[in-house]
Design a protein around this nucleic acid. Structure first.
Lengths: 119, 119
DNA sequence: ATTTGTGGTAACTAATTGGTAACTATGCCT
DNA sequence: AGGCATAGTTACCAATTAGTTACCACAAAT
């Protein structure tokens, strides 16, 4: 099933960007991959409450958009590693800036519990 | 009806940020307000295909998060103006950077039709 | 022969989001 | 009195997204 992309005749860069990274878990996935490749199973563990199905979906979409790279090893049991592409790495400063904006503006909110994602 | 916020015990700055600006039209609204206040009706015209109800919702949420300011004038017919708060203005560089990332990485896509939002 | 682990897929359901159309409130104008 | 304009709200429905559960394929280990 092709994901639904906003069919806006005036689609602009921001809309396009949000279509790509606006998914519920996508920024987390990107940030988790910032420090190197991770296997499917690890991502499943690191991202609380995400289901296999949804993780698969989000990874597929990120791959489609060339943000991450999927590498499959011909082993058994199978091993699949996901890593950021160059394009994906280019997103890190943006996410970092966004993260800093949030920290500066919403200090009061409890962010202590999430060291996995905060760089 | 309170909007559904991601109930992630490991909620992090990025998740929080995406909860605030990840809405379908929110980046557009923020960018439209970058150059000054706009009335409800103008936003409705500038944002293609958005419905009144959804525009109202998005504006309310942005206001809740302190990103925009709603100013109601006691006139008839009523006039309501929306503008960026300081917090909201702090978001502009981030969005600009995101927009640039998209332009750099997806040159081929047609962005000509959307001069309203691209700064 | 059966179990284990990995990375899925399929079918189904629940939750959330987005959209339409009709309606409201207010004061002005005719 | 009736209509207009603005900025909504409400009820209802459609579309989209997310989640659950069960299952598969493969080889190695037990």
């Amino acid at each position: 099933m092709p994901r639904k992309v906003i069919e806006n005749p005036n689609s602009c860069t921001l809309v396009h960007a949000m279509n790509m990274i606006g998914g519920k878990w996508k920024p987390i996935i990107i940030y988790l991959l910032a420090n190197g490749a991770l296997r499917f199973g690890k991502l499943l563990i690191f991202i609380p409450n995400i289901s296999k199905k949804v993780l698969t979906q989000q990874l597929r979409e990120l791959e489609e958009d060339g943000i991450i790279i999927r590498q499959r090893f011909a082993e058994t049991p199978p091993r699949v590693e996901y890593s950021l592409s160059e394009r994906g790495k280019g997103l890190l400063p943006v996410l970092k800036q966004l993260s800093m904006w949030t920290e500066d503006n919403f200090k009061s909110i409890e962010f202590e519990a999430c060291r996995i994602v905060t760089l």
